[in-house]
């Protein structure tokens, strides 16, 4: 694990609600290496997108504490003019919803061309157009000359996502952040887009952060995986370790709630209670503890930190050592969890 591309140290991203700041991302340490896909997994509200936005500097009114080293430069709270030299050039981002991620009034060619124009002013107009067409080809869009002149609404969702990807990779970035790139797409389109990202990874030599809630996508794409819950990373491991030997109670619960793995018509595992809202996040102790109340409180750490249980495999809190799924009583639990909420 050499070639450190991005190193996040003790990142805390807080949003202001009324008069207080609430951390959506808390105490996050992460590294992304060159030529590696790091998947960040978690459910909505876990802070995975807030983390990505912090790296790209896309938050509007957030307080960002800690350090984000990109190629040894701390880019947390970098002033916009310096950040804009990196964004779109060394760092590219793919967004979730291709239907809204493109400007409806601009032709495709200009939207991709803009990324080139901003970072590569030596290119002449014709060179730029050539490069855009080359990019459209690269992301697998048929008839690129024609698509160049088209508006977003004339393209299908899958095609638009390819355009969004073309924008992100226009300047051969070293870091590519993909925020739920296939969530809004049909399965067959999803597999095409994932294959495309894989191909691009091979010839770009870039590091990729893949944000997703879909464990299937993680299994297919990731080299390493970070699992987030309530703003914190609860487990990090390489993909094989994580899928074979998940340790943190949250990771294990997540795996058990996916229908793909379970026997048809069997009961899926249900995590008790609900994901706490930003204002109600437990700030003390193990944040997952309220959702596994049958586990004795004493097994949680007072200030849970990430422990390296094997080389490269980190788990937060010590409760994993004592965690067990409750027998066949998942139905009762559910009732339980609900009445508490």
């Amino acid at each position: 694990m050499s070639d450190k591309l991005l190193e996040i140290k003790d990142l805390k991203t807080s949003f202001r609600i009324k008069d207080d700041y609430y951390a959506a991302v808390d105490n996050v340490h992460l590294t992304v290496n060159k030529n590696e896909v790091l998947a960040i997994v978690g459910e909505s509200g876990c802070g995975k997108s807030a983390l990505a936005f912090s790296v790209m500097g896309l938050h509007n009114r957030a307080k960002i504490e800690g350090n984000i080293y990109f190629k040894d430069q701390d880019i947390a709270n970098l002033p916009p003019n310096k950040l804009n030299k990196l964004r779109g050039k060394d760092m590219g981002m793919i967004f979730q919803d291709p239907l809204t991620a493109l400007n409806p009034l601009m032709i495709i060619g200009d939207q991709i061309g803009e990324a080139l124009l901003l970072h590569n002013s030596e290119l002449s107009k014709t060179q730029r157009k050539e490069r855009v067409i080359e990019l459209l080809n690269k992301v697998g869009i048929p008839r690129p000359e024609h698509v160049y002149e088209q508006f977003p609404h004339e393209l299908s969702g899958g095609m638009r996502q390819r355009v969004v990807i073309a924008i992100a990779i226009a300047n051969d970035p070293e870091l590519l952040i993909a925020d739920e790139p296939t969530t809004a797409l049909d399965v067959t389109i999803q597999s095409q887009i994932l294959d495309l990202i894989n191909e691009l990874k091979e010839d770009m030599d870039a590091g990729i952060i893949l944000i997703t809630h879909d464990l299937g996508v993680v299994a297919e794409m990731a080299d390493r995986v970070a699992v987030m819950y309530a703003g914190q990373i609860v487990e990090v491991a390489d993909v094989h370790t994580l899928f074979n030997e998940p340790l943190h109670p949250y990771t294990r619960s997540l795996f058990d709630s996916v229908p793909n793995k379970a026997e048809a018509k069997s009961k899926l595992h249900v995590i008790q209670g609900i994901v706490p809202s930003l204002q109600n996040l437990p700030r003390e102790g193990c944040r997952f503890a309220p959702r596994i109340p049958w586990i004795d409180e004493s097994v949680h750490e007072e200030h849970p930190s990430l422990h390296e249980v094997a080389p490269g495999h980190f788990v937060r809190c010590t409760c994993y050592k004592h965690f067990e799924f409750p027998g066949e009583s998942s139905e009762e639990e559910e009732q339980h969890g609900v009445s508490r909420s």
């Binding site: 399965v187 067959t188 999803q190 597999s191 994932l194 294959d195 894989n198 879909d214 464990l215 299937g216 996508v217 993680v218 299994a219 297919e220 990731a222 993909v239 094989h240 899928f243 996916v258 793909n260 793995k261």
Partner: peptide
Amino acid sequence: KRLVAAIPDIDPKNREAQRQFR
């Protein structure tokens, strides 16, 4: 067939095989 092949396999070990099959 194509629809079924497009479902991501939840086991990372099958990744290459799945990709090839697809």
